[in-house]
Write a protein that binds this DNA or RNA. Structure first.
Lengths: 219, 219
DNA sequence: TCTGACAAGATCGTCTGACGATTAAACTTG
DNA sequence: CAAGTTTAATCGTCAGACGATCTTGTCAGA
C-alpha cells in the first residue's frame, strides 16, 4: 500500500500514539477516518496488542472513538461537542494561567514560557502547530499542576483543530502578549481572564463555520 | 471454562473497571496497592488482554499508575497532587454548575438534579458515596457538556477519596442547597461560585491531614 | 555482622495464532 | 427493485511463548 519506511518497530505503543497524534496535526489523518487494526498492524509492523493498546490510549484521550465491533475512527466532533470541548479548555487554560502567575509570585521562572510564546509568534505555517503545543506546555509546566499536565495534551488536539479551521484574528498575538505579561507580573486574576479570551472568541466563532466542518448533529 | 464462584465473565473489561472502581469506594482496594496482572486474571477469570485493557483504562482515568515492568498500582497521590486534582475539579465543577444553570434558563428540567441532591442529603453512611456520585452525574447531565461527562467520572474518584478523609463540615449541606437553588433559579454566576466553594474548602483543609494520608512527597 | 555482587524467579511488554460473535457487504430471490 | 440470506471482514477475548526487566534471596568478602 503506502510506504512508511522510517518506522520499523523501535518501541511500544507510544510510537503509534505519537505518530497518529502528530499525523493528525499535519493532515495525514483526517477526522472521521477509519483506523482498522489490521491496517495499522501492517503499517507500523507491530502486533495487535500494540495497536490495540495505542488505540485504547487515543480513545481515552478522546482523540478516537472506539465503537464495539465497528472499529476505531478518528473522532469527529459535532458542533455542540466542539463547543463543549472548547468550553472545558477555556476553564482549564484559565486555571493554568492563574497557577502560572501564582508560580511566578512564588519565585517561579517564566523564561521558558516567554521563549515559547516568542517562538510561537514568529513561527511560520509549517512550525506553527508545534510551536503552539510547546507554548501551551510551557504555560502548564510553569503552573506545575500535575493534573493539568495529564489532561491538557488531549484537549490540545481538539483545540488545535478548532483553531486551524477558524480564521485567525489579528488580536490573537496581542492577547497572548498580554497573557504572558500578566503571568510575568504575577497577576493571577488578570492572567486567568486573559487566557480565557481567545478560546471564548473561538467558541463564539464556531457558528460562522459551515456544517461540513463538523460531524452530523444526529440524535 | 472455569466455573469458579464469584465473578463469571458476563462481559468485557468494563466489568473489571467497574468492580475496581466500585471496590475502591468501599475500601476493598487501597491506594498504593499493587494490581498484578496474573492476580487479576485469576481473580476475575479473564485473559490477559482483558486485564490489560482494563488497567489501561483505569490508568487513563488517573486511577491507577502503570510503571513499566513494575506493574500497576492504585494511584496514591501526594499532597500536592491531591491539591492539583481538586483544583481542576473545582474549576470543572464550577463550569458544570454554570452550564446547568444556563440549561435551566434554556428550559432544561432540574428535577433529576433536585431529586439526586435530596437523596444525597438523606443518605446514610452506606449509600453516601453512591448518592454523591449520582448527584454529580445529575449536575453534569443537566448542563449537558459532553466533555465534562467524559472527564468527570475520573475526577470523582479522587474527589470522593479526598472527601472521605476530610471530616465533613456542617455547612456542606447548606452549600449544596444553595447551589441547587441557584441552578433552579437559572443564575449561572452564582451557581458557578457556589459550586466551587466546597472544593476550595477541601483544598484548604488538606493541610490539616496527616502525611500518612498521602504518598511520599519524594522528588 | 554488614555490604555488595550474582543468580533465580516473577512480571511485564509484545508477538503469534485461534475461535466465536457481530457487523458490513455481496448476492440471491420474489 | 426490495427484502432476506449468505460471505467476508473485523472485532473481542483467550492461550501460549519469548526476551527484557525488575525484585528478591543467597553467598562471598570486608
Amino acid at each position: 500500500m503506502n510506504s512508511h519506511p522510517g518506522k520499523p518497530h523501535p518501541s511500544g505503543p507510544e510510537t503509534l500514539v505519537r505518530d497518529i497524534l502528530h499525523g493528525l496535526s499535519e493532515g495525514r489523518f483526517a477526522p472521521g477516518q477509519r483506523l482498522a487494526e489490521p491496517d495499522l498492524m501492517a503499517r507500523y509492523g507491530v502486533g495487535r496488542s500494540t495497536v490495540r493498546e495505542a488505540l485504547g490510549r487515543l480513545a481515552a484521550g478522546g482523540v478516537v472513538t472506539l465503537a464495539p465491533h465497528r472499529g476505531a475512527h478518528i473522532r469527529l466532533l459535532t458542533r455542540r461537542e466542539t463547543a463543549d470541548v472548547l468550553r472545558v479548555s477555556e476553564y482549564l487554560l484559565g486555571l493554568a494561567a492563574r497557577q502560572a502567575a501564582e508560580a511566578v509570585l512564588a519565585g517561579g521562572d517564566p523564561s521558558r514560557l516567554v521563549a515559547a510564546a516568542d517562538a510561537y509568534t514568529h513561527a511560520d505555517a509549517a512550525t506553527e502547530s508545534r510551536a503552539r503545543a510547546r507554548y501551551y506546555r510551557a504555560l502548564i509546566e510553569l503552573g506545575g499542576n500535575s493534573e493539568l499536565e495529564r489532561l491538557l495534551p488531549a484537549l490540545q488536539v481538539h483545540l488545535i483543530r478548532a483553531q486551524l479551521r477558524s480564521s485567525r484574528h489579528a488580536s490573537a498575538e496581542n492577547e497572548r502578549a498580554a497573557l504572558v505579561a500578566a503571568i510575568r507580573a504575577g497577576q493571577p486574576g488578570t492572567a486567568e481572564r486573559t487566557a480565557r479570551i481567545p478560546i471564548a472568541t473561538l467558541i463564539a466563532r464556531l457558528d460562522d463555520l459551515p456544517d461540513s466542518a463538523f460531524a452530523a448533529e444526529g440524535g
